[in-house]
Amino acid sequence: MATAKDRAQAKAGSGLNDDIGEQKRLELYRTQVVLREAEQRAYDLFLQNLVKGTSHLSLGQEAVAAGFAGAMKPGDLSFCTYRGHAHTLARGVPVEKVLGELMQRDNGLMRGKGGSMHLTSVDHGVMGSYAIIGAHLPIACGAAWRAQYKGDKDVSVCFFGDGTTNIGAFHEALNFAAVWKLPVIFVCENNLYMEYTPIGDVTAVPQPAADRASAYGLERILIDGNDADVVYRAAQIAFDKARAGEGPSLIECLTYRQSGHSRADPAKYRPEGELDRWKLRDPIKIYRERLLQFGVAERVIADIDAQVRKVVDDATEACKAAPPPPLDIIATDVYADGGWAWRN
């Protein structure tokens, strides 16, 4: 578990102050509510067999996605895992596009050709969701290499879970990024479970990402991933470092996956009471209290909640009414000429 020093570091950024400002806080709140409502809806639609295949939710982890997206500039790039709905939505991709892809409709983000695990919206800087654990860390390095080579000021941000820290590509990418001093930020969402197994049962160090940082000459950064203000501040520091040409950061965000691993997993592997304890630290609950502390009226918060719910309701209806993808896209975009021809 986290050491006393870690707890101190984790709390350090959460003190009340007005460095963030009301406008940004309302944005961070709204983003978290969008993620919560859209993903809760995705779960309900899965149970109705309207979301097909699989689905990996980030319920309870919204502060990480919102905090980082809030600190990004247009042009910054996100690289996600199959648990990527939240990060995709946080960059402003419309709820209808995401739910449409999960429901395998023609209005989906990739018209049903990718599915829930591969959400991609290049126009929003979402450079893909990768379903092979660890694959996207080196890819994010490559995008950062391009920025470094061309003198572009964008930063690549790579989100992954605690389980990713035990695969080879994680270690290759961390070393590579450090040696090349790349403008990339590695964000580990430690939600305590590698699929169904507690991460502590299969990892040699207590903090799967933070405790590895020193191996790559990086600062050990462990933060409270359920407080969007803390995440936002840590993200800003890492972005500033990357844009200044000072290289990569590895940030471990302590959080908790309130949902199961995938589909309708009831997560019976949790110890009794664990979920309830974490719900006391629910990121949206924390942030609602934060807004009230800063004097935001309850009515303003309720308006945001209602607006978001309407967006999600409307998106749901639009997706239900949308047709499935047409058959003529089966063999398009295999190659750059738009087709699939492998012979003459």
Binding site: R111, V122, Y335
Partner: peptide, 8 residues
């Protein structure tokens, strides 16, 4: 390229 419906 295929999975992203031609975006990537």
């Amino acid at each position: 390229r295929y999975m992203s419906n031609g975006q990537v």
